[in-house]
Design a protein around this nucleic acid. Structure first.
Lengths: 157, 157
DNA sequence: TTTATTGCAAAACCTTTGCATGTAT
DNA sequence: ATACATGCAAAGGTTTTGCAATAAA
């Protein structure tokens, strides 16, 4: 889990905005946040940090390897803390919730396919879109009640 | 391979712009095109079709299942003809070329993982980013010489 | 004190939309 | 003739950037 010393390692000064944004990423009850979500949480907490700074900080964090940026369907980027333990994502198109998973077989096959093609992988992303169990069973998901927690634009509603 | 009759099936009138855009998607030497790429090709061919129309048509084609929209790294959407034969993608960050592949094991494992999680998959996307063999071996790739063929912003250069 | 960082507003992008005009059936 | 498509320009949403003010080292 990234912390203050990682900022220094990345050549970034330990500033209030950076610390606060890092804290939000660590403590938010939703792991996958758009820049605007981070900004709103800052506002709710009474912090005076501009949206431009949020973008700058998140981009710097990404370069430093502290966070991972995702481009899910819907246009905007979402960010999550890089906890060094790789996983892929299932995104519920109904409630917006993001589920993480890891499958060893898939990871291995990816490497193998790339190797056979002579392709040197830097990075990969696997997103599965669909409907989560919570939504299917209950008609809704506990997360929809929470304001501004959606990680992307929902298809419906 | 989609054709004129697919337009009618989708409830879309057979108009010149739609036919021309469909033709470009079928014949372009790059399968994965951003809206702007399609627009530039139209201009080069002397066609008088607005960018807004290109977006509208591509979006309609997407709804009709004629094309697939991808959100690779870099923000903008790229479109490819839906040839009904599903595949995933490797994107070269150096030359911008997109390679397609299909791996049965990966496909099966995805379904299995989703099933275990009680997640009903609509759709999925798997992108691997890295450096292609052509670039690694030759220092460049035949495709870099072709103007406006990149499917997304390159990391470097 | 020196250098990096922030805030604000403006700009840059990509994409969508309103409305009058044009085109397919 | 009617309904749908298009072009243009304008607006929308997200992300980036220039520059003066501010904070960290």
């Amino acid at each position: 889990m990234p912390n203050q010393s990682d900022l220094k390692k990345a050549g970034l000064k330990t500033t209030q905005p950076r610390l606060k944004i890092l804290k939000i990423l660590e403590n938010a009850d939703v792991r996958h946040l758009a820049a605007e979500d981070v900004y709103k949480i800052l506002l709710e907490t009474g912090e005076e940090i501009g949206l431009a700074t949020v973008y700058r900080v998140l981009t710097q964090f990404e370069s430093a390897g502290l966070v991972i940026r995702h481009n899910f369907e819907g246009g905007r980027s979402v960010f999550e803390l890089n906890d060094e333990d790789h996983h892929d994502h299932m995104v519920c198109l109904e409630c917006g919730r993001v589920f993480e998973f890891f499958d060893k077989t898939i990871e291995e096959r990816q490497k193998e396919v790339a190797h056979q093609a002579g392709f040197a992988i830097d990075d990969h992303s696997l997103y599965m879109y669909g409907v989560c169990r919570g939504f299917r069973d209950n008609g809704n998901c506990s997360w929809v009640d929470q304001p501004s927690q959606g990680v992307f634009k929902l298809k419906q509603k």
